[in-house]
Design a protein around this nucleic acid. Structure first.
Lengths: 192, 192
DNA sequence: CGAGACATGTAACCTGTTACATGATTCC
DNA sequence: GGAATCATGTAACAGGTTACATGTCTCG
């Protein structure tokens, strides 16, 4: 149930609507967190019931009215308790690795396609991080949360290293003999 | 709904009971997959209803009787279709990274403890892989699934690289000034 | 004598996803 | 004119976890 802490974390920076939080997840946190918007709205209501956040409704002309959430003292305590607690053991479910584990059932060129698809994903992800770096250099954000910023920049660096390690592994794999060539099934016919 | 494919994958190697599958998840697949046993039993029943697997009951003296599942032709086709399909976009939820993102709220020595805890986890994981390597060298398994084995050994290598990248990043972080020393709050008193 | 392996399952619950409803404004 | 942005929510469903029940054998 870490969604609760993700929400508290975002609200500890600044009051926000459910919609704002969703956007932040998708932008600056997308490489380690995500949540469906209807889940966010639901969880925020529960958290208000539990006294971790409070909200006020703001009417807007020409736009739907919005509910702005603020973290409470109890909410901040809850967040800090979690941050300081011993992490629950993490169980991983990685569909990509699951595929690799059994991909030997398919012919080599189809396995190759899977690897290349993944390389593409990793490359785009790596590119995205450059734009995220910029985000952290926004002066307003910077001055308000210097301590958090230091960690977030290191986190970004760590993620880049990890992703690069995976990418290098895949590229090495793609050069393996027996997988290296995308199959030339009709070399003779094509020359005619 | 990748659990279904994980189960089909395991059954494609060899018939098995729910209990066997659980053990395999926990042993050779634990670094990229896991599932709760009651979930496995439930899903196997549904898959039998859908014709992807079939089962027979085997009575045992002095042990509870067991239900042995076998993959069907339809099951193998379903598995191969999935293996060859374009992967769904993967959304990540990583509670550890979420913690790092907000850990700046806590004093440095508590953040340090979190990093060290993670280093410990990574180190044990890395050690486990050595024993997994041995598993793949089991001659019986080897001869039956040579093609899968090739991939699985590379997968293991990839995982090691990725984990090592994370570990190196953490160790570098721990040497950062301002985080490097585990606070010496009572250097004078302890010398007495 | 207690813990753990063996072996399967149900019920209740929590978490997460999809589909749907609403409706103005802005940008292409 | 259509898509995207802003903004919130409900209902139904799918996927995953926890607690519980049952009972024998083996090993320390």
């Amino acid at each position: 149930m870490s969604l609760r802490y993700a929400l508290l974390g975002v609200l500890s920076l600044k009051e926000a609507t459910g919609y704002d939080i969703k956007r932040r997840f998708d932008r600056s946190m997308q490489f380690f967190w995500n949540a469906d918007d209807s889940q966010i709205y639901r969880e925020l209501r529960t958290m208000e019931r539990d006294g971790l956040v409070c909200s006020r409704l703001e009417e807007q002309a020409a736009r739907p009215s919005k509910r702005i959430y603020q973290i409470t003292g109890a909410g901040e305590r809850e967040l800090d308790d979690w941050l300081g607690s011993v992490p629950e053991r993490q169980y991983i479910k990685d569909p990509f690795m699951l595929r690799i584990f059994f991909i030997g059932r398919l012919p080599a060129h189809r396995a190759r396609a899977l690897l290349q698809h993944r390389c593409g994903e990793l490359t785009t992800a790596l590119a995205t991080f450059e734009s995220n770096r910029q985000y952290y250099q926004d002066p307003g954000y910077r001055s308000r949360h210097e301590d958090l910023l230091w960690w977030q920049m290191h986190l970004l660096e760590g993620t880049v290293r990890v992703l690069r390690a995976e990418l290098e592994w895949l590229q090495k794999l793609l050069r393996e003999p027996g997988l290296a060539l995308p199959e030339e099934p009709s070399a003779m016919e094509s020359s005619s």
